[in-house]
Design a protein around this nucleic acid. Structure first.
Lengths: 190, 190
DNA sequence: TTTCCTTGTTCATGATCGTAAACGATTCTC
DNA sequence: GAGAATCGTTTACGATCATGAACAAGGAAA
């Protein structure tokens, strides 16, 4: 009779954990080793088929590492969607600085805006972990293939992206026309 | 063999819960009814003889009510020390903005600095819940009695305070000299 | 291709949680 | 004082967690 309000999913533990784990570049097993739990536990928690104890969750988060406070303050929300179609973008002033609104606005972010141009054949290469920040941008012209983690998409003029820089990512120009992107990253490491 | 790192006490769930429950003026059974758990659960959690599931903790906190994020951000222990002696304050530049370092520094906080002056007899009155933020300050001159929750202290020049604005608080000037305070609150609701 | 490694998932079992119920200790009211 | 509330604690038992092991799928190197 403890069924009515015991749906593990309503806490969204799994969604948060999965995002944070992948952001740290850890597999379930790798995290399990660090956290001193089994991979099955992490799998079940992420699938939201289990309601872990606070102690277990804490051990898991220690392996990332993320504090319980940060974990519950973290909102994975719909913005998890990394790619935006051109028509999904909020129409902002056409000024350069309007790019700051790509992605969900959060705290005040100090960011650097970059104007990039990818000539045909340009490619950032395979591995580029560890930017320690977030980045996003809008394709102005041309086409570019962007790979972030497991997701891969080809973006054209008007399309946009936004993701955590610590995730493995790669930019590769495609097509015959040079690709121009206006991008921004935070914190301003450039 | 899962004993080595499963001491329920190291999370201090019990200490936090007990303080928050008592602060809300609830008995174990009263909270249990609201939270839809049994009083035994609350007793065991507070005694730190059990490692509750996240779902159970969440139900309990809902009854107070306190969010999981707030719960884990809450620090009962030493930091709970709301008052700082003048000589405990980290010596910062004498500039006005140095006040931001009162309390433990955290994320970048946007705050509003206020220069307050309490004439003799000034009193903010008894109840002032619900600021939804944090505030702190330093006494420049004069003396003031500050009550936060159950704690009451009289501060003089050089002394400082820092607390969560949601806690019931009251400022009352004491003595014959006007009291001048430089205070800050976040988020900038003023 | 074959082999090997890693990935995430699922299942049976022991450990633990959360409950229902009883307990002693107050503190009231009568 | 008796009785009845309430308080927080503790115990036996069913429900659930967390585990260890096996599983299929996908990639990388040979």
């Amino acid at each position: 009779m403890n069924k009515e309000n015991s749906e593990p999913g309503d806490l969204r533990l799994g969604a948060r954990l999965r995002i944070l784990r992948e952001r740290a570049g850890l597999s379930q097993r790798a995290l399990a080793r660090r956290a001193n739990v089994t991979n099955a536990t992490i799998s079940l928690v992420e699938a939201e088929k289990m309601n872990p104890s606070v102690g277990a969750l804490r051990r898991i988060l220690d392996g990332i590492p993320v504090s319980l406070s940060e974990f519950f303050a973290f909102e994975p929300e719909p913005e998890q969607v990394i790619f935006y179609q051109a028509d999904e973008l909020p129409e902002l002033g056409k000024g350069k600085l309007s790019l700051r609104r790509v992605g969900h606005s959060q705290f005040g972010r100090a960011m650097t805006i970059l104007h990039e141009r990818y000539e045909p054949g340009a490619d950032t290469g395979r591995v580029m972990y560890q930017h320690e920040g977030e980045e996003g941008g809008v394709v102005i012209s041309g086409r570019i293939e962007i790979t972030v983690g497991e997701e891969r998409r080809i973006l054209g003029p008007g399309d946009a992206y936004y993701f955590d820089s610590r995730r493995r990512h790669r930019f590769r120009q495609v097509g015959t026309e040079p690709c121009v992107i206006v991008s921004a990253c935070t914190p301003p490491t450039f």
